[in-house]
């Protein structure tokens, strides 16, 4: 059980780290604000989700597991709404420039 849990953890956290890497590479390589925003919101949110998934087997209790998931959901909600605000600002900033 714990071995399986550890395997899940290692796989998921590694995958999460990979998506963080991808997000950062996107931030560095993508040409403009809006495309970078894609990299930031999509890749990093998935990365966070995978890290949370990976930590679930290590959670001390079921409640901690739920807590982890709700933090991820909160992060998703925040990411999804704030990215719209930034996108809007960026689009207006572009047209104003």
């Amino acid at each position: 059980m714990s071995l399986l849990g550890d395997i899940i953890t290692i796989v998921a956290v590694s995958a999460g780290a990979f998506f963080f890497l991808a997000g950062t590479v996107g931030l560095l390589r993508f040409p403009d604000t809006l495309t970078r925003l894609h990299a930031l919101t999509k890749a990093d949110n998935l990365g966070l989700g995978l890290v949370v998934l990976g930590l679930l087997p290590q959670a001390a209790s079921l409640r901690d597991g739920f807590k982890l998931v709700s933090i991820w959901l909160l992060g998703l909600l925040a990411g999804a709404t704030v990215s719209q605000l930034i996108a809007r600002a960026a689009r207006q900033g572009e047209s104003a420039r």
Partner: peptide, 20 residues
């Protein structure tokens, strides 16, 4: 969707040709 979206962005970011 979020998995696909993340993978999609990762693919584009890491692709040397930067398909955008």
């Amino acid at each position: 969707h979020s998995v696909v979206a993340g993978t999609d962005v990762a693919r584009r970011a890491l692709d040397p040709r930067l398909p955008l």
